[in-house]
Structure formats: C-alpha cells, structure tokens
Amino acid sequence: MSDLLMSEHGKRLPARKLSGSVRSVYIATGQNFLTGKADGLECDSGGIVGDYHHGHTRKAGGREPWYERGTPIRNDRQLSLVSRVELEKIATAMGIERVAPEWIGANIVVDDIADFTLLPAGTVLFFESGLTLKLNGVNAPCKYAGVSIAQHINAENEAIVALSFVKAAKYLRGQTGWVERAGQVKADDKVSVRISEQVFYAV
C-alpha cells in the first residue's frame, strides 16, 4: 500500500483493519506492577477491576516532564499489552531464555499482530468477549521492568540486565492503553484491530 502525498509536509495512509488473538491475560493484585496469570479480566472505565493500575486518573511521572511529578492526570496507562513474538525477540537480544509477561507487568499478550508495538496511537482493539481498548502508541521500556527480569533470572548484576532490557526492548516493549468500552477479555479471544487514517506531519 503506497503513501499518498498530501502536501510538502504531509503524507496520508488510509484506515486499515487487522486481526489477531489473545494468548494469555494477567492481573496485578499486589502492591506493585508485577502480574499473575488469570482466566479472564473484567474491565470498567477505570481499567481492570482489582488491578494495581485501576483508576480514572494517575500521577504524572518521568514520561510527562511538562507537569510537576505527582500531578493528577488522566489514566491513559490502565493496561499493558505485549506481543508473544516481540517478547521472544527481546529475550534473544538479551541472551536469556525468556522474558515472562508477568515479570514486566503485562496484562494482555497478543499474537498474530505483526509489529504490535509500532501500531499508531489511537488504534482500537475490539476483543471477542466484549472489551474495547484504545492504544497510546509505543511503550518505552524502563529500568524497573529490567530489574524485575534480573531478579527473576537470578542475575549476578541487576544493573547490567536492566540496561540490557532497556536497549533490547526499544520498539518491542508493547503498548499501554485505556478502556473505551467496558467488558471482558480472556485467553483465546479473537481481536479486531482498527487503525484510523494516518496523516504524518514532517517538517
């Protein structure tokens, strides 16, 4: 599918539909981001019911340097989604056997969606069991998830493994998203992916 030149600074890609599936789902029931496998997830407008990240607002952090840390802002990071294939690529790049989704706080592992992390912000996922999510775009890897991996593999040097994860997981870390329509999601659900028309502004 070729780009359609709109102007000197803009290009357009038409809307598209993709399809995939859910491999597994997880929930963080403790007091940190680590997740555990679940049979299914019940989601409302605040995210996953009973999950650590549930809420309509969150506190601004390093990802929002234009706000003072702790400023209440909309919670657009209610769920974390990753790709099975991309997790395998991260593990290979790090030289370790695997990166388990629960180690890095993933809630949903998807399959059969190529380059999942690179889906544009605003992409909508419709899950067979009824949930609808809107994605934020590339989720940048952080050292905290890297430290979690190091601890789970009993690494001698946590700092080296954490930095290795940040490097290896760039553009492979998955996406965060928020609930657009409340509903359920479970393993083996089919997923309909809808990418809106994209207009690229490049000066």
Rank of each mutant, 00 (worst) to 15 (best):
I108C: 00
I160R: 15
R98C: 05
W103E: 00
Y171N: 14
L41D: 06
I48R: 06
G105P: 03
E68T: 13
V191Y: 04
R74N: 10
H9N: 12
E86V: 04
G50R: 09
I153D: 01
A15K: 13
G105D: 01
V193D: 07
L87T: 06
F200D: 05
N136I: 06
Q78I: 05
T35P: 04
T132H: 04
W103T: 01
A15P: 13
F127I: 02
Y52E: 09
L119K: 04
I149R: 03
M1C: 11
L118E: 11
T35L: 02
D51N: 09
S21G: 14
K17V: 12
S80P: 02
L13H: 12
A168R: 05
D189C: 08
H152A: 03
G20V: 06
L5P: 11
G105M: 03
L34N: 07
H54I: 07
A155Y: 02
S83C: 03
V138P: 01
M1G: 13
P141V: 06
C142W: 04
E8Y: 13
I113D: 00
N154A: 07
C142L: 05
A162V: 07
P101W: 00
G146D: 06
V166H: 08
R77C: 10
L172N: 06
A155N: 03
F116Q: 02
C142I: 04
A91M: 05
R77S: 11
Q78N: 05
G70A: 15
V203Y: 14
S164M: 15
Q78R: 07
H9V: 12
P141G: 04
S7Q: 09
G122M: 10
L119Q: 03
W103K: 01
H9K: 13
I73S: 08
Y52R: 11
E86L: 03
G130W: 06
L172H: 11
G70T: 14
G10P: 00
A150N: 02
I149N: 03
A169Y: 08
K190P: 04
W66E: 15
F165A: 02
G105S: 02
P14G: 13
V193W: 07
A91K: 05
G55C: 14
T71D: 07
A145M: 10
K89F: 03
G183A: 07
S7R: 09
P101K: 00
P120A: 07
I113E: 01
K37Q: 15
R63Y: 12
A159N: 13
K167Y: 10
A162D: 04
E102M: 02
H152Q: 11
T176H: 14
M1R: 14
K190E: 11
T35D: 03
E86Q: 09
K134M: 13
E128C: 05
G95F: 01
L135W: 03
M94G: 05
N157A: 09
Y26S: 07
F116D: 01
I113G: 00
V203C: 11
L5V: 12
I160F: 09
A91R: 06
W103H: 01
V179Y: 11
T71P: 05
P101V: 00
G10E: 12
V185M: 10
K143M: 14
